[in-house]
Design a protein around this nucleic acid. Structure first.
Lengths: 167, 167
DNA sequence: TATTGTTATACTCTATAACTATA
DNA sequence: TATAGTTATAGAGTATAACAATA
């Protein structure tokens, strides 16, 4: 699952708070824990995300892709995996014959209930390592950042070069 | 610079604190801001990381790779870039003729001073969006997590399959 | 025999392009 | 003309393997 790559110690040996390292490290490690925990029920993070959103209401692949911040081509692969596992099915939309509704199977609903418990448990275990008051302030502060100064990604430095024509 | 991919709303619509989303989102956005800011002085995050560590004392590529949590092959590419920009040079180690010391040039030291200011500024701007007390608790809590429950990555679910023989 | 640094390359991931079928 | 979903594939990133020089 890769490395942190350079974010380790952006502010080394100077006793400056290294927010980059802290956020990258904790999110990276939490993600490995989440992936490992969800693997126990045969899900990836993406599959869990799609299952849960598809259970809420009738949604098309594009709608699910937007909710999970995935590309529509990534969604194809994810739905393929869910279908192969028998957890969801593609059904034609009643109102738009181009679109497919992702219908969660009974088995899919059972797995989703378990996977949601797993997600909550992993989060609880992480937060449980903190004093209650510290935990609440942490969540409030992260929410404030996520909604404010760290709401939207900066213009993409890694912008792709103009793509070569395929044919 | 990619997406968050499924981490968006691990705990949707349930008013559960979604630590995965918060950490992934904030670290992702901060990273885009950092990359964009460092691009102003022609550096990547990795180049900055290597420069700063190489300035502290005489270090070989392998030592710098470990400090920055990079693969040694990634370090080759990073040092190539630093050399091409005239910011660092490979020098033979006096004690081990296999190893190369990464020596920062004068220009490299100037750039590193500026890039460190940029890193600190980006961090200050992010943290500045928070009330002072909240900021301090956030850093304390993240440190506690990074040193405790979220210290080391979980066994890698994405383990590579056995590699095919090359020749 | 082990390690440093290098090159070459295989693997994974993601996104772009192009296509089909609808709208 | 535009959009939903699909397929194919380009491109970037990263890690593995093999190698030369040296320990």
């Amino acid at each position: 699952m890769g490395r942190l790559d350079g974010m380790t110690a952006m502010a080394p040996a100077r006793n400056e708070p290294d927010l980059s390292f802290l956020l990258d490290h904790t999110s990276h490690v939490l993600r490995t824990q989440m992936s490992a925990a969800l693997a126990e029920v045969g899900l990836t993070v993406r599959m869990h995300c799609v299952l849960v959103h598809a259970l809420e209401e009738e949604r098309t692949q594009i709608q699910l892709a937007e909710l999970g911040d995935m590309d529509k081509t990534t969604m194809v692969v994810t739905v393929d995996a869910l279908e192969k596992s028998g957890l969801a099915e593609r059904r034609p939309s009643a109102t738009d014959r181009r679109a497919r509704i992702i219908a969660v199977t009974e088995e899919g609903a059972r797995v989703a209930a378990r996977s949601q418990e797993i997600v909550d448990r992993v989060h609880r275990e992480a937060l449980g390592a903190l004093p209650k008051q510290e935990r609440e302030v942490l969540l409030r502060a992260l929410n404030r950042l996520a909604e404010g100064h760290l709401a939207v990604p900066s213009a993409d430095g890694t912008a792709r070069r103009a793509r070569q024509q395929v044919k």
